Amino acid sequence: MAKEKSKNTVSIGDVFAVSLPDGRYGAIKVANQIDNSYLIITTPYIGTEIPSIENELLGEILRQNRFFYNNDKALIWVDGKVPKEVIYIGNIPLSSNERKIRCNAFGDKWDKTVGMVVFLEWRWEYDRENFEKEIQEEERRIEEQYRKRSQKPKKMMKDETFWSIISLLNFNDENDEEEILEPAINALAKMSVKDIKEFEEALSYKLYLLDTKEHAQNIGEYSYDEETQGYFSADLFLYFRCSVIAEGKECFELTIKNPQNMPKDNSFEPLLSLASEAYTKRTGKDFEYITGCDYESFSNVEGWG
């Protein structure tokens, strides 16, 4: 099929061919439009030629099964104008089922990569071993690059003020997580936005200092074991570190010096939301702030060296 001209305006039902990395083509279809956003269906078509508008596969929705997908429909909302790289094929009116489609997946700008999932699914089906290997290598590269980034705290809340907020955590056998956090959230929310950010900075840095191999080797049955290479939960280790800080200044300082003091069966994940909850309570907005030090497990490269 000869290539048609690009299309500046978009209508529901429009079908476009997309170029895939191996030189073949896939196809996408516009299923809905809200203002400048479009709901895109990726069809199961993949071939060496641009499909004709009569191709039956253009009326179907690709099902995704790679990695964590479980027969999920390939649907996504994107913003912006139709990219110049896609090729307009024609228009197929939506079926009654297509008009009922609901989608909560949101991408970014509509670019030439939209519709590329059909190629990823093809590789999962026919070239899985190499595909998985490439993904793992890319993940390792990104992780290594991330681990090498500079970890330096920004301005932090003074220790006295920080620990006074922590001391307000209302631990009681009858309290749920919200009730435990509430007094601390209320106190922090009365402070300035600058103070809230400095609290988050101080919390992140203290969690970062606890992020060492020796501390991870002292959390009971969930401990990190370098010899056996058994399962180790990075998330659980983070939540255990949270509980150290939630216990207060004395516990934190003792545990920094003596990793054997790490809790063996106690975690407190809700501590991570304290600053964001206080910020939202004060401003009515979401908390979008990046700390100088990352508290995620394995971020402290020296501590794991």
Rank of each mutant, 00 (worst) to 15 (best):
Y25F: 15
Y25V: 05
Y25C: 10
Y25M: 10
G26A: 11
G26M: 11
G26N: 07
G26H: 05
A27R: 09
A27M: 09
A27W: 10
I28L: 08
K29Y: 13
K29W: 13
K29V: 05
V30L: 07
V30R: 04
V30I: 15
V30W: 00
A31E: 05
A31L: 15
N32F: 04
N32L: 06
N32I: 02
N32H: 11
Q33R: 15
Q33S: 14
Q33E: 12
Q33T: 12
Q33M: 12
I34S: 15
I34V: 14
I34T: 14
I34Y: 12
I34G: 10
D35W: 01
D35K: 12
D35A: 12
D35E: 08
D35P: 01
N36T: 07
N36C: 04
S37W: 02
S37R: 12
S37H: 04
S37T: 09
S37A: 10
Y38Q: 00
Y38E: 01
Y38D: 00
Y38R: 02
Y38V: 01
L39G: 00
L39Y: 01
L39D: 00
L39W: 03
I40V: 04
I41M: 04
I41C: 02
I41Y: 04
I41R: 00
I41N: 04
T42G: 01
T43S: 14
T43M: 11
T43H: 04
P44E: 05
P44T: 03
P44R: 00
P44Q: 04
P44S: 06
P44G: 06
P44I: 01
Y45A: 05
Y45G: 03
I46K: 12
I46L: 14
I46E: 13
I46M: 15
G47T: 03
G47Q: 05
T48M: 09
T48V: 09
T48R: 08
T48L: 08
T48C: 08
T48F: 06
I50E: 11
I50V: 14
P51S: 09
P51T: 07
P51C: 10
P51M: 10
S52A: 14
S52D: 15
S52N: 13
S52M: 11
I53W: 06
I53T: 12
I53G: 13
I53E: 12
E54M: 09
E54P: 05
E54I: 07
E54K: 12
N55C: 14
N55Q: 11
N55E: 15
N55W: 09
E56R: 14
E56G: 06
E56A: 15
E56V: 14
L57C: 07
L57N: 13
L57G: 06
L57E: 14
L58W: 05
L58R: 10
L58S: 08
G59F: 00
G59L: 12
G59C: 13
G59D: 06
G59A: 11
G59E: 06
G59I: 03
G59N: 15
G59M: 10
E60Q: 15
E60H: 10
E60K: 15
E60T: 07
E60L: 14
E60N: 12
I61M: 05
I61Q: 03
I61T: 14
I61Y: 02
L62R: 01
L62W: 00
L62P: 00
L62A: 01
L62H: 00
R63H: 06
R63V: 02
R63S: 10
Q64C: 09
Q64S: 07
